[in-house]
């Protein structure tokens, strides 16, 4: 049995005095664990972060796309050209993801990993052919073998319908239903979810701070998120995690910064691990 559900399942007892004692890991953990990293964002000014966000650019082969247009400064952020989201919303997304997974002195955060670019690539997956949904197989090429990951796979008919509906929703540009996308009723697409969610956060920022989401600092964004629509915050959080620790070919985890931050080896095929690496992981 793989372990993912350890953290999603219901913890019925904790016997680690140093850690948690509450019945539910998910609710209980929040109040009991001190998190020094949260307050200590290393960036004093927005420009450093913005440079990180821009460093996305170079090659198309590693999934980081080509950013041709001149970067645009918005609030504390520099927004790369060629984004699927509007530049204003992209800046809001940078601010939100930075608040969710901050960088600090020792480890990079979501913006360093280009998690915003990752999400933007997903939203605009159909701007490329094949769409940037499923990387190729079997290898990344980082450990030998060919780099097949960067050749994205053509989608099947059902996969195309699925991802178009999921990303774009079930209505056409004039708001009319596209029947084949409404097998189970109308669907609001991920693009619209993001547009509305970011605009709502921005409106809240203007109301509470007198400044937009892209203008306020990370602590102020975190305060906003705590009283925002948690469904949307969770959506952004999931994508921030994917963009920070997922394979770089999808546009995030820039130069494997997410993996380096947590001492993780990433993909291992075709070499895998040696017998020594398996039996003596403490040696590194």
């Amino acid at each position: 049995m793989p372990l993912p559900a350890v953290v999603g399942g219901q913890v019925v007892a904790m016997q680690d005095p140093k850690f948690l004692t509450r019945r539910r890991f998910l609710g209980g953990a929040l109040t009991l664990v001190a998190v020094p990293a949260l307050g200590a964002c290393r960036r004093g000014d927005g420009a450093a972060t913005a440079r990180d966000a821009l460093a996305d650019a170079p090659a198309t082969s590693d999934g980081h796309g080509e950013i041709a247009a001149t970067p645009k400064p918005i609030g504390r952020w520099l927004v790369p050209g060629g984004t699927t989201l509007s530049p204003e919303r992209y800046a809001m997304l940078l601010a939100t993801m930075d608040a969710l997974i901050p960088g600090d002195a020792v480890s990079p955060g979501a913006t360093d990993a280009h998690a915003a670019w990752y999400l933007d690539q997903l939203l605009g997956a159909f701007r490329s052919q094949p769409p940037r949904i499923y990387a190729g197989g079997p290898y990344s090429g980082r450990h030998g073998g060919i780099n097949a990951f960067s050749s994205f796979q053509p989608l099947t008919r059902i996969e195309t319908l699925r991802w178009r509906t999921y990303l774009e929703g079930s209505k056409d540009a004039s708001g009319n239903a596209i029947p084949e996308r409404e097998w189970n009723g109308p669907v609001k697409g991920l693009q619209q979810h993001y547009a509305e969610g970011l605009d709502a956060l921005n409106a809240a920022a203007l109301k509470d701070n007198g400044k937009g989401l892209a203008q306020i600092d990370a602590d102020a964004v975190r305060t906003l998120l705590d009283s925002a629509d948690e469904t949307f915050v969770q959506l952004v959080y999931q994508h921030a995690v994917e963009g920070t620790y997922g394979d770089p070919v999808y546009g995030g985890n820039y130069q494997q910064s997410g993996w380096k931050a947590i001492d993780y080896e990433g993909d291992r095929q075709p070499i895998g691990y040696t017998a020594r690496q398996m039996s003596h992981p403490e040696e590194g």
Partner: peptide, 23 residues
């Protein structure tokens, strides 16, 4: 035995403790 990979793990962590537990 049993194992966990980082996206799955990170995505199920409460966001407030994400950074500390990931590192």
């Amino acid at each position: 035995g049993g194992q966990i990979q980082p996206v799955e793990y990170g995505a199920t962590l409460p966001r407030q403790v994400h950074k500390a537990l990931m590192v």
